[in-house]
Simulated scan of single mutants.
Amino acid sequence: MKFLHTFQLYDFLDTLVSLFTAFVFGTLIGAERQYRQRSAGLRTNVLVSVGAAAFVDLGNHLTGTDGSVRVVAYVVSGIGFLGAGAIMKEGMNVRGLNTAATLWASAAVGACAGADLVAQSAAVTVFVLAGNTLLRPLVNAIDRIPLNVHSSEASYEIVVTTDGLRAAEIREALDERLEAAKYPVRETEVAYRSEDNVEIIATLVPLAVDAAELDRVAADLARMPGVRHATWNVSALE
C-alpha cells in the first residue's frame, strides 16, 4: 500500500496539532455565536475553521509553502461564497453581515493553524471574540444616538395615501412641492393596495435635508382633497 510508504509519524502529528488548534479556537468563536443564537453557530464555525486548516495543511505537505499560499487564496474566496449565503436583504435592511464576517474570520483562524502558526491563530481568535463581545456595548451606544438629519446623508421617503381616482393629481402635486423645496426625486412609486387605497411613495436623492421643510410638504399634501395621510420616513444608507 502506498500509505505505508508515504506515512510519516512526525508529519501526521503536525497535522493533528493543526486540526486540534483549529477545532479548539473554532469552538471558542462558535460557542459565542451559538450563545447569541446566530444562524452560523458552534458547528458551522468549527467546520469552517477545521476545513480551512485541513486544506492549508494539505497544501503545505504536498508542495511546501508555495502550495499552502495558493490554498489560502482559494480558502479566502471560497469562504466568501459561503458567507454570501448567510446574508439576507429584506427591503432596506441587510441581515447576516456579521455572521458572514465571523465565518470569514473563522477561516482565517483555521488557515493560521494549518500553516502551523498556532500563536497567530490564537491572536486572531482573541480579536474575533473581542469584536463580537467587547464592541457590542459601543455599537448599542452609537445606535441609540438620534440621526442628525441636518448633517447626515440618508434615504428619505415621502408617503401619501389617497384613492385611485386622485392618484395622478396627488402624484403631480407631490413632485411640484418637492421641486419647489429643491429636493430632487430619485423615483416615485405608485402602489395600488385597492381602488380606494393608493400609496404614492417618492424617494429622494440621498442628501442632507431640513426636517421642518419635509414636515411642511407633508402637511401641505395632507390638506389636499382626497388625501388620507401624508408622512415622511428616513433610514440610514447601506
Rank of each mutant, 00 (worst) to 15 (best):
W104M: 13
W104A: 14
A180Y: 07
R166K: 10
I158T: 01
R216A: 13
E90H: 14
G110I: 11
L62P: 02
N93L: 14
D57K: 15
N140A: 09
L207S: 14
Y35S: 09
F25I: 05
A101W: 05
S106H: 04
S151E: 13
G226W: 08
A119W: 10
R70F: 00
V185K: 03
T21K: 03
L204T: 03
D143T: 12
V159G: 02
G51K: 10
V198K: 01
W104P: 00
A86L: 15
A84G: 15
F12I: 00
L9F: 13
L9Y: 12
T63V: 07
Y74M: 15
T99F: 11
L207E: 14
L134Q: 03
F3L: 15
R177Y: 06
L207P: 00
T188K: 13
D215F: 11
S194R: 07
A202W: 01
R177F: 04
A115H: 08
R33Y: 07
N197M: 04
I87V: 12
L204A: 04
E187W: 09
R36F: 11
D57N: 15
V190Q: 10
P184T: 11
F20E: 04
V185R: 08
R223M: 10
R136Y: 10
L207Q: 15
F81T: 08
A53Q: 00
Q37V: 02
R216T: 12
L103D: 03
T99M: 09
V126Q: 04
A84R: 14
G26Q: 03
G91P: 02
L117V: 02
A107D: 04
N132G: 05
G96H: 07
N98W: 09
A40P: 00
F25Q: 02
Y10E: 15
E157Q: 15
M92H: 15
A230W: 02
R171H: 09
T231G: 10
G164W: 08
A73I: 02
R43D: 08
L165S: 12
A130E: 00
I87A: 10
T203D: 05
H229C: 00
K182P: 00
L147N: 03
L47A: 06
N93Y: 13
V50C: 06
F7H: 01
R171N: 12
V50G: 10
R33Q: 11
N98T: 14
T44K: 12
N45C: 03
D175L: 13
Q120G: 14
E176I: 03
R38L: 09
R144V: 06
D116Y: 13
D66H: 13
L97I: 15
G83C: 14
Q37D: 05
P146Y: 12
F20G: 14
A101D: 04
A122Q: 00
W104G: 11
S152Q: 12
T188P: 00
V17R: 14
V198C: 04
E169I: 11
G226T: 05
I170C: 09
R193C: 08
L214N: 00
F81I: 07
D66C: 06
E199W: 06
F25N: 00
R70A: 02
V124A: 10
T15Y: 11
G51H: 12
P146I: 10
G226H: 09
L174A: 05
L4I: 08
Y192A: 13
V75F: 10
V71Q: 04
L103Q: 10
G110Q: 11
N98M: 11
V118G: 05
V69G: 07
L19Y: 01
D215G: 09
F7Q: 01
